[in-house]
Design a binder for these strands. Structure first.
Lengths: 221, 221
DNA sequence: CCGTAGCCGATGATCGATCATTGCTCAAAT
DNA sequence: ATTTGAGCAATGATCGATCATCGGCTACGG
């Protein structure tokens, strides 16, 4: 289960690299979730998706199980899949785990990046631009990319995998939709992280942990 | 995917609670792994298991994907499932993530347990007994149970789930087998944790983190 | 002898159909 | 009116079969 799905579905052109069917299904359902096709608590019916995409039940099942790993849906035996209810408390639970992982990630990443923060600064710029333009979605996307870059730099595949499983990007987009979460104007917090990484701040771990935890305090309802 | 499978397969008696087939398969494969049926790197063939258990391919697939989530096997598209190679480095990766999660878990669990450490002391006693009796397996099992109790007391379902996905018990048993890992005589380290929990030691987090990380330094080859 | 294209069996991926459970409907009994 | 349980439709779980891909083997050309 390689979580990121790089480019679009193969409807356009047959790519050199054949993508397993269940990945397309996963992408489709994920888009449906973010686009608001289902509300929290709604049932996601395997056969319905299967018919809709003209595939059989099997790849749909597999895709839904993957989404279950990402905590986006819940799954009870013989009861099917439902969109996970996203309460503030549960969001906080996710952020707590995320903070624990990213704290460790940044501590590992710091010496490995060795001040090579170009990618981070790129995303930071994009966030600033998005902030002044009021492009909420872009700001969220680059914010996630910023954190992803750090996590992927940590060099620990297990940690990376667990972080991916947190489905940070999807949850961020969903919380924007479901909870009307407000994006903190946090470009400066990120600047602080970049600074810390550039010169190996010994408190980077704590900094990151607090930074991520802050996210869970930014909802207005 | 509820990771723990409480009691044995239903061959004995039809339990009131019907267990999904793929859980039996998962249990079967897991036992096979621990029992040494496969070595690291070996291929696990879906149809073989299916025939062996007189089930179809579908539940086997599902079980294997669950084991993939637990990092016990790797899975490449169109290439099938292989038993994950367990190098010291990878073991360290797992322990690092585990340490990050348990650090946070114990910090959350401490106020919730409120000095209620009876369960922990039970496992601690069992570990001591196992140590003097030289019962390696029992010591490992109770050691894992000790940590599991703390993690489950943290009250964060997301954290609990990720910890379960680390497959701590399976990895512990497997590293005993594959890497001839030596069990540190660590009853006293655990005693320290119990003490800390009993009186809300503010350094519990760091204590736990170091405690878990120490595990990854206990291999002799 | 070595490299390479093509054949072929093994096996993962997917399919369409069937079995079994769940939740609902609705009417009879209280 | 409420309860209760049989009947039924929906749907998840599982099955057996087929399709597609991978890896090894072999024959051929150099």
């Amino acid at each position: 289960m390689s979580v990121p799905l790089p480019t679009g579905p193969p409807g356009g052109g047959p790519s050199l690299e054949r993508v397993p069917l269940h990945e397309h299904v996963r992408h489709f359902v994920l888009e449906g979730l973010v686009a608001g096709r289902w509300e929290p608590g709604d049932r996601i019916v395997e056969r319905r998706i299967a018919q809709e995409l003209a595939v059989s039940q099997a790849p749909v099942r597999e895709a839904l199980r993957e989404l279950e790993t990402m905590e986006l849906v819940t799954c009870a035996p013989n009861k099917g899949v439902r969109v996970r209810e996203l309460t503030l408390g549960q969001l906080r639970d996710v952020y707590l785990v995320r903070a624990a992982l990213e704290r460790r990630a940044v501590m590992l990443a710091a010496p490995r990046m060795a001040g090579n923060v170009a990618t981070l600064e790129h995303h930071l710029d994009a966030m600033r631009r998005a902030a002044v333009e009021g492009d909420i979605d872009s700001q969220a996307l680059h914010g996630v990319a910023f954190h992803r870059a750090i996590v992927h730099a940590c060099g620990n595949p297990v940690l990376i995998r667990h972080w991916d499983w947190l489905g940070v990007e999807a949850w961020t987009r969903l919380s924007l939709r479901w909870l009307r979460t407000e994006l903190h104007d946090n470009a400066e917090d990120h600047e602080e992280l970049v600074e810390g990484l550039r010169r190996g701040d010994p408190h980077l771990g704590r900094l990151m942990e607090l930074h991520v935890m802050d996210y869970s305090n930014e909802s207005r309802t």
